[in-house]
């Protein structure tokens, strides 16, 4: 069985999300450990089969670049949204701090989940399932109660800590949320954890820590990466 650290290094490499320190670790492993390279090759192979069958394909990524009218429409929508948001920001800025404004702008409860934990799929997750359902129903207090019960099940720790942190955010208990997020050592929810942890730091006025958290996401793809780059720029 491959140690968890090695798995995390490979996951980070595949998602293009390795920190400088981890790049050095990765290189050390890849140049000395045959099993590590074997696992790397197998994971790339699996990823390749997935991409061939279910992937989005490279051409489509460039699609927006080719269709200029869509870009123009997007630009107009963006400008309209920017003007609208700008008006809101100006009005809110009279009564709110910069950090709170940024928090309110970027904090949204997490979208959904497949209710499958990373450790043992579909086993012993009744308490987690109830906790998650309560979270989606915005019944954060009850969600916290069930997720705390589930925390004793080590197989489901990663997902429990993520949603426990999110539920604490739901009741505006940011210190407890930070505690829950920091307990999570797993990489599977790394993007979500770093993002919401950064928002908690932002809300509690720990700007340097917030910037550090968001900086870890700036190179990642998708909305977290994009929003993190904006937030880092604004907070510096």
């Amino acid at each position: 069985m491959m140690p968890k650290k090695s798995n995390n290094l490979i996951s980070g490499f595949l998602s293009g999300n390795l920190s400088k320190k981890n790049k050095t670790r990765f290189l050390k492993k890849a140049s000395t450990d045959r099993d590590f390279v074997k696992k790397l090759v197998r994971e790339v192979d699996l990823d390749e089969v997935f991409e061939d069958e279910f992937g989005l394909g490279k051409d489509e990524d460039g699609e927006l670049e080719k269709h200029i009218p869509v870009r123009i429409r997007f630009l107009f929508s963006f400008l309209a949204a920017a003007i609208f948001i700008g008006a809101i920001v100006v009005s809110v800025s009279l009564i709110d701090t910069k950090e709170s404004r940024l928090f309110n702008k970027y904090y949204h409860p997490i979208e959904d989940s497949n209710l499958v934990s990373r450790g043992e799929p579909n086993s012993g997750i009744t308490e987690v399932r109830i906790g998650l359902l309560l979270y989606y129903q915005e019944n954060y207090i009850e969600a916290i109660r069930h997720l705390n019960n589930a925390a004793s099940d080590t197989n489901n720790l990663e997902i429990v800590n993520l949603y426990l942190g999110l539920s604490y955010m739901g009741v505006e208990n940011y210190e407890q949320a930070i505690g829950a997020f920091q307990t999570n050592k797993d990489d599977f929810y790394a993007l979500e954890i770093k993002w919401y942890l950064g928002l908690c730091y932002l809300k509690t006025g720990q700007i340097n820590k917030a910037v550090t958290s968001f900086e870890l996401l700036t190179s990642s793809k998708g909305e977290f990466g994009k929003d993190s780059r904006t937030l880092v720029r604004k907070l510096r």
Partner: peptide, 19 residues
């Protein structure tokens, strides 16, 4: 479509972990 790409990425990560 960007939301589809984000969704696809997350679902893929979950799927590969399960596999």
């Amino acid at each position: 479509d960007q939301m589809v790409k984000d969704k696809h990425y997350r679902c893929k990560q979950r799927l590969l972990e399960l596999v």
